[in-house]
Design a protein around this nucleic acid. Structure first.
Length: 216
DNA sequence: TTGAGGATTTCG
DNA sequence: GAAATCCTCAAT
């Protein structure tokens, strides 16, 4: 039942040019980082050394003073990584069956994070039929689904996002940046999803007209 | 120690 | 519309 994922090819030149995102770049308010992460790449490296990549197309910010933030009240065993320095993962279990991946942001001592809500996976091959591609485009459309697709669980929480680790991030490709500047790619900012508190705060961003977004 | 509830997904 | 399913944390 587990979907087959596209495997990254190491001889792709454009991919080789992508630069890893450093913790410094993430040491800003989550409301700044969240939209900036759109178009960046999440990389998953499994034990065999094989890597999988997904384009980040939907994010949400969580910040201090935000009642929906898991770190709203006090540091606990679960959320303590959110209080620490930027560049760490924060993974939690939701509804007893799904995991959600966050990137810890802002300065040490400021509890905040960005929830990665959806990835666009690269096509399996140029020869894959349209039906297959459409299915694949929804494989990581949602925070629980992307963790299932990339085999992300609680053991990957509080880990550094650095190359060689199980997870890391890469900057936008020059092609994405160019298309975004030209207006060919646009972002939408709106309210967050699935919350009981802080429902009116517009801290969700996604790539407009992207089929891999959880709820356009 | 307890139990209510949750940053979701899927199926009917 | 509601079930699945279990960890977390505030309140006993």
């Amino acid at each position: 039942m587990k979907p087959t994922l596209p495997q990254s090819s190491s001889d792709n030149l454009a991919q080789a040019l992508r630069q890893p995102i450093s913790p410094d770049w993430l040491a800003r308010p989550s409301t700044e980082v969240a939209p900036d992460l759109l178009g960046c790449t999440l990389v998953r490296q499994v034990e065999s050394g094989q890597t999988y990549r997904g384009l980040i197309v939907e994010t949400e910010a969580y910040a201090p003073g935000d009642p929906a933030c898991h770190a709203y009240r006090r540091p606990t065993k679960r959320n303590q990584v959110m209080f620490g320095a930027a560049g760490m993962t924060y993974v939690y279990l939701i509804y007893g069956m799904y995991h959600c991946l966050n990137v810890v942001t802002d300065l040490d001592g400021v509890p905040s994070a960005v929830l990665i809500r959806a990835l666009e996976l690269e096509a399996i091959s140029p020869w894959s039929d349209r039906q297959k591609e459409r299915k694949l485009s929804r494989v990581a459309a949602g925070p629980g689904k992307l963790c299932r697709a990339f085999n992300i669980n609680l053991s990957l929480s509080a880990q550094p996002l650095l190359p060689g680790q199980p997870l890391w991030l890469e900057h936008r490709s020059p092609e994405f940046e160019e298309q975004w500047k030209q207006g060919a790619i646009a972002f939408v900012q709106t309210t967050r999803i699935g919350l009981t508190q802080g429902t009116d705060i517009p801290w969700r961003w996604y790539v407009k007209d992207c089929p891999s977004v959880s709820k356009p």
